[in-house]
Simulated assay, not measured.
Amino acid sequence: MYQSIKENLYRLKENKLFELSVVTVIIISALEIGAKTFELSDQAYSFTSILDAFITLFFLVEICIRFIADNNKRHFFKKGWNVFDTLVVLVSLIPIDNSEMALLARLVRVFRVLRMVSVVPELRVLINSLLKAMPQLGYVILLMFIIFYIYAAIGSFVFKDINPKLWGDIAISMLTLFRIMTFEDWTDIQYETMEVYPWSWVFYLTFIFFTAFAFLNMVIGIVVNVMEEEHASMRKSKEPSLTELQQELAEIKALIKQQSSQQ
């Protein structure tokens, strides 16, 4: 009985229509959260409350289906996305009205939109790639911070008297350099210092070369490389392994021998 229910739920979980319905409910949940940020009439507020209860119940049923249909329940909560989905669903059960946890419940309902990532495999690949790239990105970020710190110290010492609002201390100078790196009106800052120090353009151009060109391209290269590895592992996991093929061949041979012996 239980095995039959489990098989039916597994087929339901793997059904594309079921996956599409989950995505649809997540989109409706996002729209419902956005609607609550506006001033609503009493009827509209009542409708959104009913809709919120339906969405919470739907997600509760969906996570139960996934848990029952899973072949290895001991490892179900060892997967990060399963833990995230379960926490979001459980905290969503907290009543919003007349509760000290009302603010937390509202915030968690916002995170229900992130469930789109756990449902769509392609989005999971992107997030997993970004997380796996973080250790390598850490060294690039550290090196970028060192460059920022050196240039901020130079800028603070040299340009402080020109514009204290932009170069008053090393912290403000780093914010100014971040503005330069993002090309937000950086030429105005450059021309201002060039009126006093004509060769100060060298300071800006070298900084932009190191940060906007060199380091950002390194970040992109690392993320793309990890993403390719993640896609390759995903394709490999979908392909049947050699052991599985050997087992299937052995079963076919055993079946053929059994039929031949009966004849």
Rank of each mutant, 00 (worst) to 15 (best):
A53K: 12
L31V: 10
K6N: 08
I65Q: 03
R74G: 11
I28L: 15
P95D: 08
F59I: 11
I27W: 13
F76T: 02
S49P: 04
F58K: 05
V23E: 14
I63M: 09
V88K: 01
T48Y: 00
V25H: 02
T37I: 04
R66F: 05
I27T: 10
N15Q: 05
H75F: 07
I5A: 11
L93N: 08
L40D: 11
N15H: 12
A69N: 06
T37N: 02
D52C: 13
L90F: 10
F76L: 06
K78F: 12
I26P: 00
I27E: 11
L57H: 09
A35N: 08
I55P: 00
S29G: 11
D97I: 10
N82F: 13
P95H: 06
L107I: 14
V91C: 14
A35W: 01
P95G: 04
I28E: 07
S49F: 03
A105F: 04
W81Q: 03
L51M: 13
C64K: 01
A69I: 06
I63Q: 08
A53H: 11
Y10M: 11
V88F: 13
K16D: 15
S29A: 15
R106E: 02
Y10N: 12
T56C: 12
K13C: 10
F59P: 01
E62H: 08
K78G: 13
T86G: 03
L93A: 14
T48V: 03
N71T: 07
E39N: 12
F77D: 03
L90A: 15
T48R: 00
M101F: 15
S49N: 11
K73D: 06
I65Y: 01
F76E: 04
L60N: 01
I68Q: 06
L107A: 11
L51F: 07
I94S: 06
Y45P: 01
S49W: 01
N8T: 13
S99R: 04
L103E: 10
T56M: 04
A30H: 04
F54W: 03
E62K: 02
S29M: 09
E19C: 14
N8S: 12
L9W: 01
I5P: 03
S92N: 09
S99A: 08
C64W: 05
F84T: 02
D52F: 10
E14M: 15
N71M: 05
I33G: 03
A69Y: 01
L103F: 09
G34S: 06
L107M: 12
F58N: 07
E100H: 10
D70S: 14
V61N: 06
K16G: 15
E32H: 02
S21T: 15
W81S: 08
N98G: 10
A30I: 07
F59Y: 15
F58C: 07
K6F: 06
F77A: 06
L40P: 05
S29Q: 14
E7L: 09
V61H: 06
I5T: 11
L31M: 13
Y10W: 12
V83I: 14
N15E: 10
G80Y: 13
L107R: 10
F54L: 04
V88N: 08
S49I: 00
A30N: 05
I26R: 00
D97R: 13
S21C: 14
L103G: 03
R11H: 10
Q43N: 10
L17Q: 14
I26A: 01
I27M: 12
K73P: 02
V83S: 06
I68R: 05
R66W: 07
L57M: 09
